[in-house]
């Protein structure tokens, strides 16, 4: 049994705060990085991440334990993002924002290289489906099938979003490299 499984058991069976705290520390960076890539606002990303963990804590007993705990958390986080979009009733505005350059918050990260800043900025130019599929499969190691389950998206759409998103990213990164060289 892995440490994570033991912590989940402890958090479920005994409502153990320490076990829950360890689970939060274990997963917070990935969940926050994922949500920031989607919403591009550090405060909002943190709020949604907090909501994600609190929902997970409330529903911990419904987690079957057979699947991937991390995947379960990502699906809660993604639903929280979608809920935010619906709530704000500004879906069109938010969608229009994609493709526009946003202010980049390098101080949000522990340690970030120039290359990673370029990547994060390029990811801001993609649409949410492309960003989420690429992040789940290429940054956090989920398979296409797992991403399809997390996002509740057909497998074919996951693959096409990744392919389209990566082509865009490649072009965007090449452009930013050209610009750096020219300056």
């Amino acid at each position: 049994m892995t440490t994570e499984s033991l912590l989940i058991l402890r958090a479920v069976a005994r409502r153990d705060d320490e076990a829950f705290s360890a689970l939060v520390r274990m997963h917070q960076a990935k969940i926050r990085a994922y949500l920031l890539r989607l919403c591009r606002d550090p405060d909002l990303a943190d709020d949604m991440a907090q909501e994600t963990f609190l929902t997970a804590f409330r529903k911990l007993q419904s987690f079957k334990g057979t699947g991937n705990f991390s995947g379960w958390l990502f699906s809660i986080a993604h639903n929280s993002f979608l809920q935010h979009l619906r709530k704000s009733k500004r879906r069109t505005e938010v969608t229009e924002q994609y493709g526009r350059q946003q202010e980049f918050h390098a101080d949000y990260y522990e340690d970030i290289s120039e290359e990673q800043i370029d990547l994060e900025q390029a990811l801001q130019q993609l649409n949410p489906d492309e960003t989420s599929t690429i992040t789940l499969c290429h940054s956090f190691g989920f398979s296409h099938q797992e991403a399809s389950d997390i996002l509740d998206m057909p497998l074919g759409s996951v693959k096409s979003n990744i392919s389209r998103g990566k082509t865009k990213l490649k072009q965007l990164l090449a452009t930013s490299k050209d610009l750096e060289e020219a300056s």
């Binding site: 917070q28 943190d46 907090q50 963990f53 290429h138």
Partner: peptide
Amino acid sequence: LDALLARPATPADRGFSERVVLRAG
């Protein structure tokens, strides 16, 4: 690109975990 994507930047905790655990409690 794959190599770069595989090394995502990590957000700093800055008390986030503590806040979540406090709110959960």
